[in-house]
């Protein structure tokens, strides 16, 4: 069986700077894979290339067998790849509910005309969008917050809202970019449980970036380590922990 996501020979250059080179990554259906590495290693750049935010300088990115490198981000999303951002990017002046349901907009069919005329088709669709969004808010424990503006939520809830938004249109693959950043160990534990839970419930495949190594060790089945734009190790968590290259890469950084 071919991998759900298959990245090969990825090269990402910005002017003179090579942010990612000769990077390969395979993720199978329903896997939970960790992508770790020190700051500036190129992890987010890999996400940006997969989701269409950057066009790869070279290399291939296949999702469910289909080449997606260079597609526009909204196309990649519509094919079933959703993401969160390292520095949360919510629609701050939209309500919590609107933040989530707008992410399901592309599946709707009632366009301008139906909206302006408030046809039954429009009403049904609005109801469906709202119900679906509320379902996700409930999963994320945000159902009491739906009328709040996103900017007014505390940090932890903003992180969860971003995940709810990423999940609303039934993606196959979820990319989480340092979702635990800025959380205390207790919150991190809760978050990891939540990630496990949604992975089961929505039959998701998850790729998780983290720069603190110990966070991913407990939950991931497989871990990739990047440094200076290259993959330096890949394997089961216990293999990674024992890998001398990884130890060296993390030496001197407090997170190790």
């Amino acid at each position: 069986m071919s991998a759900l996501l298959d990245v090969t020979g990825l090269l990402m250059r910005f002017g003179g700077l090579v942010a990612v080179r000769d990077f390969a990554l395979q993720v199978d259906e329903h896997e939970l894979v960790g992508l770790i590495g020190p700051n500036g290693a190129g992890k987010t750049t890999v996400f940006n290339a997969i989701t269409g935010m950057y066009r790869p300088t070279a290399g291939s990115i296949r999702f469910r067998g289909r080449e997606i490198a260079g597609l526009k981000p909204h196309r990649v999303y519509q094919l079933g790849v959703a993401r969160t951002f390292q520095n949360i990017r919510l629609f701050r002046e939209l309500t919590v509910l609107d933040n989530v349901r707008v992410a399901d907009h592309h599946r709707g069919e009632a366009g301008v005309l139906h909206s302006v005329l408030r046809t039954p088709k429009f009403r049904n669709e609005e109801r469906r969008l709202a119900d679906r969004a509320r379902e996700l808010l409930a999963v994320m424990g945000l159902e009491q917050r739906e009328s709040e503006y996103a900017r007014n939520l505390p940090y932890g809830e903003q992180r969860r809202l971003e995940i709810a938004r990423a999940l609303v249109s039934d993606p196959k693959l979820l990319l989480l970019d340092e979702p635990a950043a800025g959380m205390n160990p207790y919150e991190v534990g809760q978050l990891m449980e939540l990630i496990q839970f949604v992975r089961e419930r929505f039959r998701l495949t998850v790729l998780l970036i983290e720069h603190q190594m110990r966070v991913v060790m407990g939950v991931c089945q497989r871990v990739l380590v990047m440094e200076f734009g290259e993959k330096i190790a890949e394997g089961r968590p216990e293999e990674i922990r024992a890998n001398p290259k990884v130890i060296e890469a993390y030496l001197g950084t407090s997170e190790g």
Partner: peptide
């Protein structure tokens, strides 16, 4: 309407809007 929210999402954060399929 859903279309209206899509418009506003572009105003709020164009990149994030792209990232959620707009």
């Amino acid at each position: 309407s859903s279309v209206g929210r899509a418009l506003v999402s572009v105003r709020e954060d164009e990149l994030a809007a792209e990232a959620v399929g707009i």
